[in-house]
């Protein structure tokens, strides 16, 4: 790992000021991706700005129609939150499927979203539930947030501060985990908002996206059988040693069917 200057600000404003003053700064959240990347010398920031001391970025607030999660909230805090488990159980369940226990004890929701790993779980929730991603400057619609492989709508220096999830009538998430890393080869979250269906897909493409073809069919007929005839085009899908694009397209349908079965049961 290359040397860097370490900072631990206590407010978002101080973090942004430090970022702007540095040559080539990066924000450090849970560090579950950034630290391994720095160890491999694939990232070499001059300054590392640790967000763990910023109280305004922590905390979980659960209302009847909305769950707000501070960006620094660790995965296990979401997975084991009784309030989230009661109001938005799909989010707690999804958080409990990320990586392994030690990773869930460190990794944060804001870090995961800002990184936009194509195989991360949380993006499926942001897309599938139509969440809003808040930064110190603005509110970004979930549908606009993920732009490409490891690329988001965030501008340099912009920090994800909290995420607001609307509470659906019901929802379910299923993923096909990579057997070694537990990253999602494909993950599908289906949410029913009073009959309006949203489908968020992660793992299949360069970044998470809405499966509009599946939504169209399910809005007509909320039945696993209805998925049988749907074509999931694999154009632009990821193809690597874990799975071909064609196989990922197949998995989208399989995971959608399983999620739908969960949602209807």
């Amino acid at each position: 790992m290359y040397p860097f200057n370490y900072h631990k600000p206590e407010t978002v404003a101080d973090a942004v000021a430090l970022f702007n003053d540095a040559d080539d700064a990066m924000y450090l959240s849970g560090g579950m991706t950034l630290i391994p990347t720095m160890k491999q010398r694939l990232a070499a920031p001059t300054d590392l700005i640790d967000l763990s001391g910023i109280a305004e970025m922590t905390g979980i607030d659960v209302a009847a129609d909305k769950v707000t999660v501070g960006a620094f909230t660790r995965h296990n805090d979401v997975a084991t939150s009784g309030a989230i488990g009661e109001t938005l159980p799909v989010l707690a369940q999804l958080a409990g499927l990320i990586g392994d226990n030690q990773v869930r004890n460190r990794g944060t929701i804001g870090g995961s979203l800002a990184n936009s790993d194509p195989a991360a779980d949380y993006p499926a929730a942001v897309i599938g539930l139509g969440a809003t991603v808040h930064t110190q400057e603005r509110a970004i619609a979930g549908d606009e947030f993920f732009q490409d492989l490891f690329e988001t709508a965030l501008q340099p220096g912009e920090i994800v501060t909290r995420i607001e999830f609307p509470v659906p009538t019901r929802a379910a998430y299923r993923k096909f985990p990579n057997p070694a890393s537990r990253y999602a080869v494909v993950g599908v979250l289906i949410a029913d908002f009073n009959g309006a269906i949203r489908v968020g897909v992660t793992g299949a493409g360069p970044c998470a996206f809405r499966a509009s073809g599946l939504e169209e069919v399910l809005n007509q007929n909320l039945d696993p059988e209805a998925l049988e005839g749907v074509e999931v085009p694999d154009a632009g899908f990821n193809s690597d040693l874990h799975a071909s694009a064609e196989y990922r397209a197949h998995l989208v349908k399989v995971m959608a069917r399983r999620a739908l079965n969960d949602l209807l049961s």
Binding site: Y6, G31, M32, I35, P36, L48, Q102, N105, R106
Partner: peptide
């Protein structure tokens, strides 16, 4: 909390 000490600065 259990953490992997090789991935904590």
């Amino acid at each position: 909390r259990a953490v992997k000490a090789c991935t904590v600065l």
